[in-house]
Amino acid sequence: MDLLNAIVAFLNFVFVPGVAYGSQLALGALGVTLIYGILRFSNFAHGDTMAFGAMATILMTWWLQSLGVSLGPLPTALLALPVGIAATALLVLATDRMVYRFYREQKAAPVILVIVSMGVMFMMNGLVRFIIGVDDQRFADGTRFIISARDFKEMTGLREGLTIKSTAALTVVVAIIVVIALFWFLNKTRTGKSMRAFSDNEDLALLSGISPERVVAITWIIVAALATIAGTLYGLDKSFKPFTYFQLLLPIFAAAIVGGLGNPVGAIAGGFVVAFSEVTITYAWKKVAGYVLPAWEPDGLVQLLSTDYKFAVSFAILIVVLLFRPTGLFKGKAV
């Protein structure tokens, strides 16, 4: 019985949040990795692209809510997503046209593009805060829980409750659908294959008649969609605050690099590695330990790191990977 309680506590506090957070990071890292594979630079503006996408979706959601539109048990934000994606796609395409294309034509070194993307990051950062403000915004509606702790306890008679937020479940389902769609696109369609060809060998792609500007534009549109979906899911699951999206940049990059930059499978794996490391290291294991080893009564919380230091986890993972396996778990490009 105690063991069951321990498992439920583990699922409730580590596994479920880890899976949801991992899916969000995976979607973010996919965007970063696509840009790296095709445009060959690390896009520091990705976190703020997510913030912009989430913001556009939130504004649309509010408008729909004010009209009384709702999806019943599902959040209205799902209905607003296409508009958010379109707005973000327009923004990144305009940014590419006005900023990145200039450097592409100059054949600027990747490090210059990284710095350029930092400039873009600050611009987007300001734009989002200017439009929606710096505060927390709530836009989630629909059913809050699939299973609430109290129902679970009544159902099973266990002392520990298991809570599954509907947003967490939604995150995982949407992430799975998006990933399947993305891989289908990259592996089965002519356009998707031409993107992989361009990422693999740019010169040969040119010799084959693949148009770089078209590949770049399609990449930005896909990245806008991924960023908006990731940003909205994160906002639904936690809350929307522009600054947290800026902070998300670190775990997202850690995920993309752990998996191997430029490798989409790696981005997904990396997302979960980072998410689970963060959650397990910052979780106070006292409760689970109490069930498994009743004789052991630890003084502290059995927490390796306080949650305030959660970014240190991504940082540490990043450094370990860069030191010992710079191409990542799956074969990506060396940084």
């Binding site: 294959k193 031409s194 992989r196 060809a197 693999d200 060998n201 040969l204 010799l207 084959s208 693949i210």
Partner: peptide, 21 residues
Amino acid sequence: PQTSNIFTSMTVEENLEMGAF
């Protein structure tokens, strides 16, 4: 070209398909 004349990460068939892009 003399070097890097194939898409190494893609299958042989995909290489041919890209040739016919």
